[in-house]
Design a protein around this nucleic acid. Structure first.
Lengths: 152, 152
DNA sequence: TCACATTTAATTGTTCGCAATTGAATGTCC
DNA sequence: GGACATTCAATTGCGAACAATTAAATGTGA
């Protein structure tokens, strides 16, 4: 009976979906670490590179919208990517408020070296692609509902 | 056709479960922020309090195992909780290597003030309890498979 | 045109998160 | 008992993450 109550107590760590998400994010990060070390990237830096590999010459603001990050996080991160010769940062001539991020040749080339990363993650997940896609869609839907509440 | 290929490209941001988890964790954090501000806690500090509300007088190591955090993260965090008069840190007399974390009266009292937090999160999730429990179980299972790979 | 608001990055300060190292306490094996 | 390894917390250094503020460029309305 006490056991049954415990499984329903919303104040218990094990019953909280947010802790599940929080701890899963850290677990992913630990799996990524050795893979990304070889590329000289951290996970957030890898996310920025994914954005740029899809579309180059993008303002900081747009990267922020895609990754849900602000300039306080991105500015120093992008400076590190620039120091690593993976991107260039230039003021837009049309709108001088914007800083455009463009890949260097090295930045483009890194895409090939990074090609094997997703399948390594898939293998570590030990799960079928279709199951992962279903989970991903559910988590994205939850995230979007949470973000909708924040905007209120 | 191009669209169909894009939805399968494993190197696309939108196709990555890890980004879904990463961004969902941040979304949860933003929803928690105003709720926890009233308690004077950050989200990781709240997690530590959840552990202590379940069982008091716990060594740092055990908190770390439950939250998947190490002493490099916990030591300064626990010092902040001590500075806020929510916990006491004392060396174990049986094993002087261990530091035991115990709740103060204020720390115990905070549990009542925090009681409404989970239901606020539930409301923000805009989702049934049973759906959330199912998702939580899936995510925990994924996390545990990832952590199993790390230990290899 | 000029005052005012908005947008965009950058900056500052605080808190996580982790790798790597240190130092003290405890265990183990001969 | 004594050399050695192991365990545990603390420390150092670096890279996020975000709130709050600043400063410059752009947009808007009288």
């Amino acid at each position: 009976m006490a056991r049954k109550l415990a499984t329903l107590d919303p104040q218990r760590l094990d019953n909280q979906i947010c802790f599940a998400v929080y701890s899963a994010a850290h677990a992913f990060n630990r799996v990524y670490k050795p893979l990304l070390d070889r590329l000289g990237l951290t996970y957030p830096q890898y996310l920025v590179m994914l954005v740029l590999w899809e579309r180059d010459d993008v303002p900081v603001k747009e990267i922020g919208e895609k990754l849900f990050l602000d300039s306080g996080t991105l500015t120093p991160l992008l400076k590190r990517l620039e120091a690593a010769h993976l991107v260039k940062r230039t003021r837009s001539s049309e709108d001088e408020r914007q800083v455009l991020i463009a890949l260097t040749a090295q930045g483009h080339a890194l895409k090939e070296k990074a090609r094997s990363v997703p399948q390594s993650i898939l293998a570590a997940s030990d799960c079928s692609v279709s199951e992962l896609v279903a989970m991903k869609d559910e988590i994205v839907a939850l995230r979007d509902r949470l973000n909708a509440v924040i905007g209120e």
